[in-house]
Each structure stands twice: as C-alpha cells, then as structure tokens.
C-alpha cells in the first residue's frame, strides 16, 4: 500500500471539490509550478472580507490537485485575513501527510494561487 497516497488525497484528487470557474468572480489568479508544469487558476467571490465562493481549475499531479480541493473547502466562508495567514503547515495538516521538498512544491501551488488571487486587484465588471 502506498504511504503518500492516503484515502483523503486519492479522494480529493479523483473527485476535486469546488472545481471549475465562477460566473462572476471578484478575484482571479493563475500560477504555475515551473519545474513540473503543474498549473492552477483560482476564481474567488469575496464580499465584505469573506470568501463566499471559490473555484480552482488546473492540471497536475494528485498532490497539487488534492491540495487545491482541500484548501478550497478550508477557506470557503472564511475571512480573507484568515486565508492570508495560512502557511505550509496548514496545507500539510489538510493533506495529512509529510512531503519531501520536491513534492512540497506541488502541495503549495494551491496556496500560492489563492494568495495571489487575494492580493490581486479586484475585478471590475
């Protein structure tokens, strides 16, 4: 049995939550892991400092995609400030595994994409 690919990671990579795009996002960002080609985009709907809705879309390994799915659930309905406070340990706690430095980059792509969206200019319709 594989040690890294625990049920939670497999579940979220096979059936990613909050996948796709929002019709009217207020924030959007894209990020790419240059070394392995994993890519993610994030759509956010932020109202009164709260992340009301979120969607990730992208391509990549099970770790990067499961991490995006888990992160989307973790921040949905939370204040922007709380999401900006999240760090590496929070992502590892969501995934429930330890990662080698090489795979850590995969896991952190979602957080990088999210933070990029949170700090980017508001989309004006």
């Amino acid at each position: 049995m594989s040690s890294l690919y625990q049920a939670i990671i497999l579940d979220h990579s096979r059936h990613p939550r909050n996948r796709g795009h929002l019709d009217h996002p207020t924030r959007h960002s894209e990020a790419k892991n240059q070394t392995c080609g994993d890519s993610l985009s994030a759509d956010l709907l932020i109202r009164d400092g709260i992340i009301e809705d979120i969607r990730f879309e992208g391509e990549g390994c099970a770790i990067s995609q499961a991490s995006a799915s888990l992160l989307s659930e973790a921040v949905k309905g939370k204040p922007v400030a709380a999401a900006l406070d999240m760090n590496t340990d929070d992502i590892l706690a969501l995934l429930g595994v330890e990662l080698s430095p090489n795979r850590l980059k995969c896991a952190l792509l979602s957080l990088e994409t999210l933070k990029k969206a949170l700090t980017t200019d508001k989309i004006t319709a």
Partner: peptide
C-alpha cells in the same frame, strides 16, 4: 496519472524512474 504520481508510487516500491521535464522544457 501525472508522471510525478507514477514516479512516487514506483519510488515507494524502490523502483527508481524519473518524472518531470528532465531539464528539457523546450522539448516538452
């Protein structure tokens, strides 16, 4: 299955392959 996941699963079985761009982005 992403190449990194293939390599990771094999790696856990002591089967050593390489995954990624192999330092050849233009080729990929």
């Amino acid at each position: 299955i992403h190449p990194h996941d293939i390599a990771q699963v094999l790696g856990e079985r002591d089967i050593c392959i390489r995954a990624g761009e192999h330092c050849a982005s233009p080729l990929h």
